[in-house]
Amino acid sequence: MDFDVLSFYFPKYAEAFLLTVRIGWLGIFLSIVIGIVSAFVIYFRVPVLSRLIGAYVEIFRNTPLLVQLFFLYFGIPKLGLNISAETCGIVGLGLLGGSYMSEAFRSSLGAIPNSQKESAEALGLTSVQTFFQVILPEAWVLSVPAVVANVIFLLKETSVFSAISLMDLMFTAKDLIGLYYDTTEALFMLVVFYIIMLVPVSAAGSILEKRARYKMFGE
């Protein structure tokens, strides 16, 4: 491995890293918002809307991100709207992630026994108070492992952004290989930067999971 090549590549990867992290986290933020709203709609069985959300979840969980990105990137301009590749990446990741997050939140809400709701209501809490004081905090704790897994999954999914010519880590690696043929160095740097991006998230995730577990189950 040629270290001159690595140091030459470093700034290019660093730039791509920042772009990937920015788009990745904005997409994840969007996915959590979509996930929470969707889970509420399904949990409260909002008429019509819950059906629509159910269809959305099925469609986005069962198609690849790449296909979704193509639809957004090439489809939306056909409707006369201008959308940048970056916005497209954020929205695409947000929609894909939203379907996964929705399932994570919905199943946690569903996992809270009805008797918890009854005991809160027997104390005189209104159903709104019961939801926000009892059901939601408990479900939130339960959902942590699934949410952490989704976050890591979504960060890795950013690697398909290169298909809509976003200059993310994957794009940079392919680009540099095409230009200089230093395959080993280019791929090495790619792996290193993905690890830099994901290991801290993984570590933070397991701390969060441990805390949540301890809070709920004490072990």
């Binding site: 009854e118 005991s119 027997a122 104390l123 005189g124 408990e138």
Partner: peptide, 16 residues
């Protein structure tokens, strides 16, 4: 319901 206290077989304290 405020006026009617209830205690359940399975306690139903709030775990969090």
């Amino acid at each position: 319901r405020e006026k009617i206290g209830m205690v359940f077989q399975s306690y139903e304290l709030f775990p969090h």
